[in-house]
Design a protein around this nucleic acid. Structure first.
Lengths: 227, 227
DNA sequence: ACCAACTGGTATAATTTTGGTCCAATTTAT
DNA sequence: ATAAATTGGACCAAAATTATACCAGTTGGT
């Protein structure tokens, strides 16, 4: 007699049950499954059975096993924000910044109070003396551009820029930081920032926009020059 | 009900538990986590284990560690998407679109295939004959601009534009739609769209950018004229 | 200006846990 | 009865965990 909805037995059964657990989200992306011996106890099966099930799960690209380390979920449910960071290239990021930052600068000149500008200058000072510390400069740089966005007084632009900052600091290309951010370049970037600061204080829209555009173009060149 | 679900052990387990605490809001933005030695006691694990978990949390951009200072939450809750819609004014929305859409149009001209442009034209046809139905036009208009964004081939810009569209369709000012979107204006906007379409087909960057800018300026004026 | 008490960062070695592999006995399916 | 799958055990090597001790910035009080 056939039993249609019976839990399948053996390794196929283990496969299905673990698969369900993964797809239903009980084990998230990159999470580690219990050890084979653990699973063996839990499913009341021998370790070999668990292993064949895990092999199938690995073949199905739901899981990845590492010697001496564990079994990890490679299935992603929906992680929008992570994905966007993963599939955005450095070039696309610069493209986007090129669209937004000149506009932000214009709005800063239109909307920012002198108190805002003083705050901006304080943040800018954090980048001083970071020529030999790419990490410190990177943080100060992000803080400066973020503060710039907040001086635009436009909450939507701030929110968008925060997303951009998140992606910038995503580990995807933070590894290159040491190669891209040489002391000379850091000095150059800081000079750009100060020139931008002066232009903003003078409320010179076009000059400020030109500076930020050439700043981003330079960053673009420096990035590509690394290939 | 049997559950294979189990709290993972080791650094993976610590990672998950701290991650849950952060995402659930138990530790707010910029709040300092307990020290590594403290966490080691709480989780009954060695400090090294805690450290590997914290390293993963840092990689996941949930946390940032500062030498001699502590470990701080950098994760911001996702509740702000609603907030941002609430506190963004129509003027600020147009400002932001002015920053992004001309750039999108340029990218479309550079990157879009003819198949993309055909798709864009199909979407554009949806707006025909909506002169007396502001709601239908509004939806078609959003679809057109969204498709434009997707033709830019830049996933980050697409994502940003989706946010903008969300805010546009937020009910905050949809009540005004009937006042702003008169048949004359709808006709005018549609003509703009077609002129833009032609300029894109001719790969005329400057003309296309001019059209989208004047299009947004007009929308701006129409909006302000309602006050 | 200094100090003491935190903090995270690093290094080391012993120990435990993990997946990888092999094998013979047993159960199950055909 | 035969073939396949499962079982349970032993052993290996990779990686993680543990338990220390010590280094180096930060903070706050004196």
């Amino acid at each position: 007699m056939e039993q249609p909805l019976q839990v399948s037995t053996g390794s196929a059964g283990v496969f299905n049950r673990i698969r369900e657990s993964i797809i239903s989200g009980q084990y998230g992306y990159n999470e580690r499954l219990p050890s084979e011996r653990d699973l063996a106890v839990r499913f009341k099966a021998a370790r070999g059975t668990i292993r064949t099930a895990l092999e199938q799960l690995e073949q199905a690209n739901l899981v990845r096993r590492k010697f001496g380390c564990g079994t990890f979920v490679t299935y992603r449910g929906d992680t929008e924000r992570e994905d966007i960071a993963e599939e955005t290239s450095p070039l696309e990021l610069i493209e986007t910044r090129m669209a937004i930052e000149p506009h932000i600068v214009r709005l800063v000149i239109l909307n920012a109070s002198n108190r805002d500008l003083n705050r901006l200058e304080e943040v800018l000072k954090l980048a001083e003396g970071t020529e030999n510390d790419p990490n410190a400069f990177s943080m100060a740089d992000e803080a400066f551009h973020m503060t710039l966005a907040s001086c635009s007084q436009n909450p939507l632009l701030q929110w968008i820029y925060r997303l951009i900052n998140d992606i910038r600091s995503h580990n995807q290309w933070s590894a290159r930081k040491d190669n891209v951010l040489t002391p000379d370049r850091i000095r150059f970037y800081n000079e750009d920032h100060w020139r931008l600061m002066v232009a903003i204080r003078r409320r010179d829209q076009n000059h400020a926009a030109d500076i930020i555009i050439s700043h981003l173009k330079q960053a673009h060149r420096d990035l590509l020059g690394q290939e």
